[in-house]
């Protein structure tokens, strides 16, 4: 039977009716219409579904709904939108840091979590922070440059 659980996403309160063990990913995408968070593997192995929960980038595909009740959840939509892009999003455009772009949201969430703790990361620190995110198109170096660009802009 469905439960009703209150969650806070991008600063807004939502009451969602779903099994308490539903992965957060499906709530975000299908109940709240936040399509920027993506399914990649369902096991937390690829990073396509990353969101920021209480400052940390975590896999929403294996985070059950019950575990995030009352916590602050930030998705790529909360980072910025076309009307007001986050420096990371602008930097991805400036560096043309995408091919297919499927992994981009999750990577930006990892990068945002990194920059919040380390506003001027080195190349190696950026790579280490993004190591849990997979990119198959081979856009890694452009993405690292985009994160560096955003860091400079934020500083």
């Amino acid at each position: 039977m469905a439960d009703v659980i209150a969650i806070r996403v991008n600063g807004a309160e939502h009451k969602v009716g779903a099994h308490a063990d539903t992965p957060l990913l499906y709530i975000l995408r299908n109940d709240l219409g936040l399509k920027g968070t993506r399914f990649g593997c369902g096991n937390g192995e690829c990073g396509a579904c990353y969101v920021i929960i209480e400052g940390r980038a975590v896999a929403s595909c294996d985070t059950p709904l019950w575990s995030v009740a009352g916590k602050d959840i930030l998705t790529i939509e909360g980072l910025g939108s076309e009307g007001g892009l986050h420096p990371l999003q602008q930097a991805f455009i400036d560096e043309q840091a995408a091919q297919c772009g499927y992994c981009a949201s999750g990577i930006m969430m990892s990068a945002a979590a990194l920059l919040a703790n380390n506003p001027a990361p080195t190349d190696a620190e950026i790579r280490a922070a993004l190591d849990k995110n997979l990119c198959r198109c081979g856009t890694h170096n452009r993405i690292v440059r985009a994160v560096q660009r955003a860091a400079v802009k934020q500083a």
Partner: peptide, 22 residues
């Protein structure tokens, strides 16, 4: 090097992938 037409929407979480259709 005209910037890619699709990258702004992909950066802004409005990619419109087939996975996002409903």
């Amino acid at each position: 090097s005209v910037p890619r037409l699709d990258i702004p929407r992909k950066a802004a979480a409005r990619a419109g992938f087939i996975h996002d259709l409903e």
